[in-house]
Design a protein around this nucleic acid. Structure first.
Lengths: 233, 233, 233, 233
DNA sequence: TATGAATGAGGGTTCATTCAT
DNA sequence: CATGAATGAACCCTCATTCAT
């Protein structure tokens, strides 16, 4: 499991030691995602990583330091916006771009790939934001969301700065995140939902279709979005 | 909400003499929502509730028992499906029903009312389901979702059993939950979003409009939903 | 179980209340004998006695007070020296007197009679003497031991003040107590020992015989006991 | 007794650096013997051993684990059967063997040597047997008792399997244990008994003499022991 | 450098006791 | 008088962290 990510640690030249660090990150990511920061003890992480009990303090100066690094590491490994941009055909119709975006998003989020705990970790940050969330938003989320906004703007036939864009962007994203963030309840409501690849594709198709209908229907009726009530609270 | 225990203390009305049990539930709900089960110590809960350190064990037989009861209590206090049903005009057009549903949902979820920590608590259950989640789904979520499905079916012009209903229901719900579950990131992306009452109404209107467009656009093209890939995993 | 001992509490005339007190003593004696003072919680005692949780503090002013009263109560109920004296035929040969004494002692100690926990309670006092032990020695043990010494003196053919009497008295008593105080180990060494009435009689017979042989053998050779090394420590 | 752990600390010889584990065992043995399992708090043990409050859980996985190890350790340190066997001259008359056995037993039990709390600890196990008692009986008591039985058989002039052997063995042992197990009462009955070395020797002599008389007297009259009433309880 | 024995603050829980009813 | 909800001190134990090796 520690084959693909020595690219950033190769400079020191101590592969065996670096392995410990990376193994620690992998193990910590998994259990932090599963049980949360407070629900995990470093003994378990070290045992899972096959490392010494003092390794966490040695490498990360404590549990919190480890958590911060795990968050960074997770999003370093996550689907980069570049890959997303590459996958999207630049001169295809906007509907098709949206399709690629949504399908890619779903796949990277729900298909149990390498950083399968990324989603859960982020979901935890939503509920209990740590100091690391700011970095995450800046480096990972903002560029992806900018890409989505450009697609949405194209579909709505307006400029990317149009106020409507943010709301329809939210409509797209919300329907994607829903299936990951609410898995436990969804699976209780729909026992036949197993998150197989076919089912994920089916869901993604539905989201694309829904958003397309919504945005096509809204074209030309976007005046309502001009008046946004400034938050005064 | 406090009917079962007030039979012996109801006449005094002293807030300090209000059942220690209830004060503990309120305090615990607040901090459990904020910091999670493991992030909270019962000493804090007791201090907040003005109760003794041993009160939790006396009344709930431990921290876990308290958590279970908090979850029950929270959803007992939450918006009951009855109120929702009452608020919805039975012979209005489906669009209007949807509007009432969504607006009520948003209000009860985001307006900082009494059970303001309900949403967070449920969001935590999503990520780290406890044994209490099954009860919750059965007693609280299923009936509300059934109500939504009936509205969706009406808007799609199909029977409530039609497979498309579940997916469009999800589209509605997902766009509601999004704004609560992802608050921290949303507020970083949209710093002008303060979740004021006007803004909440604005967002709810957008959700209603989007879903309406989507469902109206989908009417008559629901054949795609007939073939659902049975999960084999 | 609370039928035979209202004789001392009948003067107050509150049979129902006194019952609680006595039931508490019975229950406490049982569990104190079984698990020791610290190993028992008053909740258990009250539950066993069918009394309120506050009853112990009400009747005995605390756990320690209860323990003290239990000890008193136990020896009030125990085999009185009078009964023992009555059972011993005054003009029988000394050997027979010893037989009656030992058999009675064994029976009252090992046969699971009413105060079956008396022995265990006293054994606990041996290891961890409480303030109540002095009273016990004075009121219960000393008179019984005096009786035994008179028998031993007769068997040895010396006056009761003769120094040898105390040592042979100890030889008799030690072989009686052994079977009660070391039950757990004895039963592991001799798995066929079930402390049935027949077996107890068999053991008592052995003790009598042994002591008789020893004392008869020692008659006329008791000079050694004249020089007792005064304890200087 | 402290061989397995001293491999890394033996050279320093600092008493303070003596294995924390051993210091804990010593301290725990002392207070467990004095106050019993429930009457002792690990804080006291740790304070007495000069160890940290968490040391018990670290080394023994809890208070119970410590108790179990203390019992093992106590009997590992106690008079081993080997020493006893060495002390007994193989071709001396049986009376002399018995004398060595009893004197050694008394000395190791009552002289305040290193494992002075051994006896008390075992006495407690008698009253409230823990799971560790089985081990103890197997490893420590059985071999010593076998040795005693061989002496008794020789004195009775029968084979070691003869049923009388067990009963006379019990007579010997019971008169030894008596003086340790019933100290508090004995000292109240005999205020001049201070358990000085001279007095212990005096008592041991009495026990040897008594048993010798008894067994010599019983020789040739052992038919009574053939019929042992099978316990049916 | 990496280890693991040792630390100590603080966690949940227990339990004898109290006090208003 | 009897009750049982409530108390708070103290218990055992956990766990992130440290430090000599």
């Amino acid at each position: 499991m520690s084959t693909a990510k020595t690219d950033k640690t190769s400079d020191t030249g101590h592969p065996a030691e670096q392995d410990t660090r990376v193994r620690l990150l992998e193990a910590a990511g998994e259990v932090f995602a599963e049980r949360g920061f407070h629900g995990v003890q470093i003994r378990d992480i070290c045992a899972l990583a096959g490392a010494n009990i003092a390794a966490v303090n040695y490498h990360f100066k404590g549990k919190e330091g480890l958590y911060r690094e795990v968050l960074k590491y997770a999003h370093h490994c996550a689907m980069a916006v570049d890959e997303l941009q590459v996958a999207i055909p630049p001169d295809a119709p906007a509907e098709q771009k949206l399709g690629v975006f949504v399908h890619t998003f779903f796949r990277s989020m729900l298909s149990g790939g390498r950083p399968s705990w990324n989603g859960k970790l982020l979901a935890r940050e939503m509920i209990e934001p740590s100091a690391a969330l700011d970095d995450l938003v800046m480096s990972e989320i903002t560029p992806k969301f900018a890409l989505l906004r450009s697609i949405v703007a194209e579909m709505l036939g307006v400029a990317i700065e149009h106020p409507a864009v943010r709301w329809f962007g939210a409509s797209v994203i919300s329907q994607c995140l829903f299936w990951e963030h609410n898995k436990p309840v969804i699976q209780r409501l729909y026992p036949d939902l197993s998150y197989s690849d076919e089912q994920i594709r089916f869901i993604a198709d539905h989201v694309v279709r829904t958003c397309t209908f919504a945005m096509l229907g809204a074209r030309g009726k976007l005046d309502e979005y001009a008046t946004w009530p400034e938050g005064k609270r």
